[in-house]
Amino acid sequence: MSILILSPFIGAVNLEFREIFIQDSLSSQIFFDLRVPRVLFTFFAGSILALSGLVFQTLFRNALMTPYTLGISSGAVLGAGIAIKLGLGSLVFGIAAISVFGFFGAMFTVFLLIYLSRFLQSSQQQSLLLLGIALSLFYTSCLMIIFYLGSAMQNDMLIRFTMGSLSVIGWNYPIALGTIAFVFFLCVYIYRFELQLLSVSDESATMKGVDTKRVTLILLTASSLGIGILVSISGPIGFIGLIVPHIVAKLHPTTVNNRILKTALFGGFFLVFCDTIVRLISTQSELPIGIITALIGGPFFIYLIIKKASA
C-alpha cells in the first residue's frame, strides 16, 4: 500500500513536497498530470495482467498459461501495429483505433486457440502452449513485415511500442483502464464459484451444472478486452500474469475463488513497484517496463517449467 502512496514522489525530477500543492507550479504539474495518473494507470495495468493470468491458469489448468505465453498479447501487439502502420490515429466510435485493433487482435487469437484446441485431446494441454508459442512467432514475423514496409518514423513508434511503456499523460487513460479493470474484476468475481469448479476439471464442472462453454467464453472475452486495450496503450508487458498468481498462491494457499481480489491488488502493487524501480534507475531516457518484467519473468518461466517437469 505504501508503495502506491510513495511512488508518485519518485522519479527523474525531484519534487519539493511543499511545491506540489501550489497551483500551476512545475512540481504540481509533474505530480498531478504525470506521476499520479501514471501510478494509477500502472496499478490497473498490473491488476488486469495478474488477474487474466489467474483466469487463464485456472481455465486451462496449467501454471504456464497466461495471455502472454499463449500469444494473445502478441495478437494485440500485431493488431495495434497494423493500426499504427495504417496511420489510424483517429477514433472509431469515440475509441482510439489502436485500442480497437488491439482488442480484435487479442480476441482473434483467443478464438483461434479455442478453435485449434478442438483438435487436441484434453490431456494435451501442453500442446496448446506450443500453439500459443507458434502463434507468437508467426505474429512476430508479421510485425517484421510491417517494420520492413514502414517508414523510419512509423518504425520508431512501433519499436517503442513493442518495448512496453507505462508513461501516460493526463487522466483519460487511467480512467478508461480503471473502468475496464473494474468490469473485468466484476466478471471474474461473479463467476468465482464456477471458476473454483473449473479448477477441478471441465467434466466435473459440467456434471455439477456449470455451463462450462459459456463461462469460459465470457471469462476469456473479458480477459481479452482487458489485455487488448491495455496492450494497445502500453505495449506488451510480459510475465506479470505468470509471476503474480504464483506469489499470491504461495502467500495465501487457498482455493482460487479466495485469491481473485488478492491477485488483482497484488498485481497492481507489483507493477507499480517495478515501475518505481524503472523510474529510480533511469535518469536520461526511461528504460521500458516490458524489458524489466521480461528480465525477471524469463528466468521465472524457466524455473516453473523445470519444477513442473521434475514434479
Binding site: N62, S199, V200, S201, K208, G209, T254, V256
Partner: peptide
Amino acid sequence: EIYEQFITVEEFVLLGRFT
C-alpha cells in the same frame, strides 16, 4: 484429477452442493 493445489477435503466435498 485436479489442478487446484490448495483445496481441502471439506472445500472439495462442498463443491457437490453447487447445483
